[in-house]
């Protein structure tokens, strides 16, 4: 079902009011134009990667910087075969209780493996990516983080990606 533009507009106005009250330095960052790529083959023959901004990382990796008021736009590599128990969550701007108990609530790594086993998806990428999405000014994501993740996924032969927030 497509969304009601009036409902979207009401939600958007509420969001702007809330964010500008909470984060004086917040700069709304949007894409200059929306890109488009056709998959070009069935999902069942495609390699799919996950990118999650919910603050996920391997527990063996450094956590994200939750104290910097400008956020943390670094990323973490998550091996496609990482066990769910090896993945932790560091994020201060939403309630992480659910993903701490079940990482697939935000980062469907086991779910993707199930879809591969069922033949819905061709293969899981050898590496997925985690980020911590609290970055009030998105410019460093546009200029640094996003192109680097895109370059790595393309080099790995990834055809499609599912992105999830916190």
């Amino acid at each position: 079902m497509l969304l009601d533009p009036e409902e979207l507009n009401r939600k958007h106005q509420r969001w702007i009011a809330l964010v500008t009250e909470m984060h004086a330095e917040f700069q709304f960052t949007r894409n200059a134009s929306v890109a488009w790529t056709n998959l070009g083959k069935p999902l069942s023959e495609s390699t799919v990667a996950l990118v999650c901004t919910a603050g996920i990382h391997l527990k063996s990796q450094p956590a994200y910087d939750l104290l910097n008021p400008h956020g943390d736009w670094s990323f973490r590599e998550i091996p496609g075969d990482a066990p769910a128990q090896a993945i932790g969550v560091s994020h201060s701007h939403y309630d992480t209780e659910a993903p701490q108990r079940d990482i697939d609530c935000v980062f469907p790594i086991r779910t993707l493996r199930t879809l591969v086993a069922r033949g819905v998806v061709g293969a899981a990428a050898k590496t997925h990516y985690g980020m911590m999405g609290f970055v009030p000014n998105g410019t460093p994501i546009v200029e640094e983080t996003a192109p680097e993740i895109a370059r790595r996924l393309a080099a790995d032969g990834v055809d499609a990606a599912l992105l999830t927030p916190g």
């Binding site: 790529t37 701007h93 996003a146 993740i149 996924l153 990606a161 599912l162 992105l163 927030p165």
Partner: peptide
């Protein structure tokens, strides 16, 4: 803000030839 970050990364992936959904 997670959603803003998702959208910015998503568009870069799409521009790099990876079909995406968030």
């Amino acid at each position: 803000m997670c959603h803003q970050s998702v959208g910015l990364v998503q568009n870069a992936l799409e521009a790099a030839g990876i079909a995406t959904v968030s």
